[in-house]
Simulated assay, not measured.
Amino acid sequence: MPDQTIPAGTADAELSAEDAKLVTLARGARARVGATEGASVRDQDGRTYAAATVSLPSLKVTALQLAVASAVAAGATTIEAAAVATESTTLDGAGHDAVRDLADDAPIHVAAPDGILLGTVTE
């Protein structure tokens, strides 16, 4: 994962309350449907959007892509921050790119399914 700014294994309690909420929403989206990933984003107005990975024969969308798409569909023009709850130790490139389409420097917090923060991508 590029540019981790928070050491691996740090509890999400060290995040701001708003960013900790994003991790909680991502975990909930993931758990609700048993997906491999859940994600959430916060837009310029403070609204949050959560999503889980979609894997159908005709459609594959990462959780972070879907959370960004939901925000854009609701009128968001900027992403302030994002979070992904994943079984992977890396951030998927497609989700990263979707966030960067709306914000060059929004932090993307990557957490394990139990909420332990694995790192934060800032570029």
Rank of each mutant, 00 (worst) to 15 (best):
M1A: 14
D3V: 09
I6R: 12
P7R: 15
T10Y: 12
D12H: 12
E14W: 11
L15D: 05
S16E: 12
A17R: 15
A17G: 11
E18N: 15
A20K: 15
A20F: 02
K21I: 02
K21M: 04
L22T: 08
L25D: 14
A26W: 07
R27P: 00
R30S: 08
R30H: 07
V33R: 10
V33C: 08
G34Q: 15
T36F: 07
S40D: 11
Q44M: 09
Q44A: 14
D45F: 05
R47A: 12
T48Q: 12
T48N: 04
A52W: 03
T53G: 02
V54W: 04
L56F: 07
P57L: 03
P57C: 02
S58L: 05
K60W: 11
Q65H: 04
Q65W: 01
A67W: 01
V68W: 00
V68K: 01
A69Q: 07
V72K: 02
A74M: 01
A76E: 00
T77K: 10
T78D: 06
T78E: 13
A81H: 09
A85G: 05
S88G: 04
L91C: 15
G93T: 04
G93C: 00
G95C: 03
H96S: 03
H96P: 01
A98K: 01
A98W: 00
D101W: 01
D101K: 06
D101G: 07
D104C: 04
D104F: 06
P107Q: 10
I108N: 04
H109K: 13
V110E: 13
P113D: 05
I116A: 14
L117I: 08
L118R: 13
T120W: 04
